[in-house]
Design a protein around this nucleic acid. Structure first.
Length: 178
DNA sequence: CCCTGATTCGC
DNA sequence: GCGAATCAGG
């Protein structure tokens, strides 16, 4: 890969946004984090502040606008999902469920309300490691395609939440509910 | 061990 | 100019 104007502009933008060199390398593709750091220096872009600096020294540039990427589960309703709350009759019990329309998997994923779900870290394919959830989100043919990316502790390819979805397809759940 | 950016230096 | 290797640190 060579440093085309387009790639350099993307590097500048992502570096200004506060992404780490490895994250930028993953976004660009075809380069290592060392290559990114080397390029940043050659471009004379402002470096990152030292961690243990004294009082006055420079602060990391404009971290305020950077989208946070939580690495762990957070107890809140599913984010970024098309949802609607429905009530379904099951015998004498009225079950309230939230139905997510998962466009990529072309299924409706239903789950009880108040379930703890992960917030996607929106990782690119090249950012995945052995310990990140590999559940795909979005349309692979569109720019916003990404993976869940939550931390996982075992050998599962998915976080605990998405593992349940993966191994408990909606069709099976519907059968079980009958 | 995971990660970070900074620097050096052969290519 | 490029980036792997290395260093120093969280």
């Amino acid at each position: 890969m060579n440093w085309t104007d387009e790639r350099v502009e993307k590097l500048k933008r992502l570096w200004a946004e506060g992404l780490s060199a490895s994250q930028i390398a993953a976004q660009l593709g075809g380069v290592s984090r060392n290559a990114v750091i080397g390029k940043v220096h050659r471009l004379n872009l402002p470096g990152r502040a030292k961690a243990g600096g004294s009082s006055s020294a420079a602060r990391p540039a404009k971290r305020a606008t950077q989208t946070q990427r939580p690495t762990t589960f957070q107890a809140r309703p599913a984010a970024n999902a098309t949802t609607r709350t429905v009530a379904r009759a099951s015998g004498a019990t009225l079950l309230k469920e939230e139905v997510e329309v998962d466009a990529f998997h072309e299924v409706e994923v239903s789950r009880p309300l108040n379930v703890v779900v992960p917030i996607s870290r929106r990782l690119a394919l090249t950012e995945l490691t052995e310990r990140t959830c590999k559940w795909p989100i979005g349309d692979p043919m569109k720019d916003d395609f990404h993976f869940c990316g939550c931390e996982i502790n075992d050998a599962s390819p998915y976080c605990t939440y998405h593992a349940k979805l993966a191994y408990q397809p909606v069709s099976d759940r519907r059968k079980a509910a009958r």
